[in-house]
Amino acid sequence: MQPTLLILAAGMASRYGSLKQIQKFGPSGETIIDYSIYDAIRAGFGKIVFIIRENFAEEFKEIFEPKLKGRVETAYVFQDINAFVNGHEVPADRTKPWGTAHAVMCAKDAINEPFAVINADDFYGRDAFEKMAAFLQNECNDKTYSLVGYELGKTVSEHGSVSRGVCAVDSNSNLTGINERTKISLENGKIVADEGDTKLELAPETPVSMNFFGFAPSVFGISEKLFDQFLAQNASNPKSEFFIPLVADQFISKGMGEIKVLPTSAQWFGVTYKEDAPGVQASLSALVNKGEYPDNLWK
């Protein structure tokens, strides 16, 4: 059975103002999502599910359907703030959705096979998709999930600090914890995490999560129970969010199973800062020139 790729794109409209402005980075106007989908199809994924907001569904489909028709199955799922709240009161002043793990839950009816989750605006690289596809086809089950571990040095920005999930990994390549460090930056050629009073130097090869997870459909039921507990404690906080690492952490710590860290040599890139954009464009041009990608993905 071919695995599915779930793309988290519900936050995009708010960040870009309008979908018409989704940035074009490739030589033929490709967005970062185009490269992820292209890599996923050639790695063996059989279906692409987009999580979007309902108010820009038509605009979104107009962008992606003409490119993907006949190449891969697609489905569109809406992240609705009232989904799965199970009787909990949603604060009237809450406008933002409940976070990435809630977005995943909203795809429950569209996915019945092992699947991967990615962010819409991150470039993950061919190697990462190939490793994930092999895991989902051969190893994934209700007790074994996965996460692509990037080398920290390949995920930092020269233009300011970034937030990264620093992974603790045991000798069997299983995840033992994710520590969200919110201020990681380059200082005099070293990678430093700002911990308030102290600065912690991190090795460039430290594995970090860029939200590229591999799950079996059993994650939906696990997430629903955890979301119920989350709302009992956090529903009244308008800024609280239910994130995927929270589900991953509970899955491991409660002994439900293990999460394999799949190491990749791929260079991650994304646009954390406006100033990152020319670098992303240059990196993609270099990959096209090397023959890793055609100069027009969907021709």
Rank of each mutant, 00 (worst) to 15 (best):
I7H: 02
A10P: 10
G11C: 04
M12V: 04
R15N: 12
G17D: 02
L19R: 00
Q21P: 04
I22N: 01
Q23A: 08
F25Y: 14
Y35W: 08
S36W: 00
A40M: 06
G44E: 06
G46Y: 09
G46Q: 03
I51K: 06
I52V: 13
I52L: 07
I52Y: 00
A57D: 14
K61I: 00
E65A: 03
G70K: 01
T74K: 00
T74Q: 01
V77I: 09
A83R: 11
V85K: 12
E89Q: 15
P91I: 05
T95Y: 11
T95H: 13
K96Y: 13
K96H: 13
P97L: 09
G99D: 00
H102I: 02
V104H: 00
K108N: 05
D109Q: 08
D109H: 12
N112P: 01
P114Q: 01
N119I: 01
D122V: 12
Y124S: 03
E130P: 08
K131N: 13
A133K: 02
A134G: 10
F135K: 04
L136F: 03
Q137Y: 05
E139I: 02
K143Q: 14
Y145N: 12
S157V: 05
V162W: 06
G165F: 08
V166Q: 02
C167V: 13
V169E: 07
S171H: 10
N172V: 04
N172D: 15
L175N: 01
T176P: 06
T176R: 08
T176V: 14
I178G: 01
E180I: 06
K190S: 15
V192S: 02
A193D: 08
K199M: 12
K199V: 12
A203D: 14
P207G: 01
P207K: 07
S209H: 07
N211V: 11
N211F: 11
G214K: 04
F215S: 07
A216N: 14
P217V: 04
S223L: 06
K225N: 14
F227H: 03
D228I: 02
D228W: 14
F230Q: 09
A232W: 01
A232T: 07
Q233P: 06
A235N: 11
K239S: 15
K239V: 10
E241N: 13
P245G: 10
Q250A: 12
F251I: 03
I252F: 08
S253E: 14
G257V: 08
E258P: 01
I259F: 05
L262D: 09
L262P: 09
V271T: 13
E275D: 13
D276A: 09
A277G: 07
A277C: 04
P278W: 00
G279Q: 09
A282L: 09
S283P: 07
L284E: 03
S285I: 10
G291C: 06
W298Q: 01
